[in-house]
Amino acid sequence: MEHLLDPDFGREPILRARSLNKVYWLGTAVYAVSNVSLEIRQGEFVVIRGPSGCGKSTLLSLLAGLDRPTSGEVVLDGQSLSGLSENELSAVRRQKIGMVYQSFNLLPNLTALENVALPLHLSGTPAGFAGRHAAYLLDRVGLSGRSRHLPTQLSGGEQQRVAIARALANDPKVLMADEPTANLDSATTRDIRALLTELNRDLGQTCVVVTHDHSLIEDAHRVLSLVDGRIVADEPGGAAR
């Protein structure tokens, strides 16, 4: 925990979890997430790793307000997510969280530009500005020439870039990614890794990434290791060393 006191990170925690538990009842209580407490500061690049089925994605879902904990609390940007309705949680996600998934999860009927612009439209951004900003973000992820393509017309890496651009659309407090490179080849993985690192380094974007990818661990400030739903290690990543 030494690094948390590092003056380089002298910023307030943007994301806090206190005693998080997620229990599934499958005849007996199965703890997908067990008594997890953590703090993530603004500008941190945090990687959550662990073996398959250890609860990484569940923890990420809890932190993003995509799922509700059985007990415990998540506080994002000073706002507790406990007790919020589904619509209120949607508003929080819209304004403060950008999500990137392993399977990209782009809307298949929308072009790359429309996918990126949609969160902006939902936030009430004027159409003209939303379009321009979405185009800027696509340019930022290196896809300016593919903005009119549907997801099915894009490669996996391109789809993931669109997903990242969409996640960034509303300038989120935290960018969360669930196995963002798992479905990609090594070259594309390198590109996505570079993109995430660049976003964190250049823009100060807080990133929480669930991954098995060791190269991403190298870029992280912190690495949280999860086993059976518990954080068993909280260590500095490659970027902090």
């Binding site: 589904e86 996600r93 819209r94 304004q95 999860n105 782009l106 809307l107 969160p119 939902l122 936030s123």
Partner: peptide, 16 residues
């Protein structure tokens, strides 16, 4: 369901 989940994940509310 997945499509609706994506829409919710990017911040669309139920009635929307």
């Amino acid at each position: 369901r997945t499509e609706f989940a994506i829409l919710k994940a990017i911040g669309m509310r139920g009635f929307e």
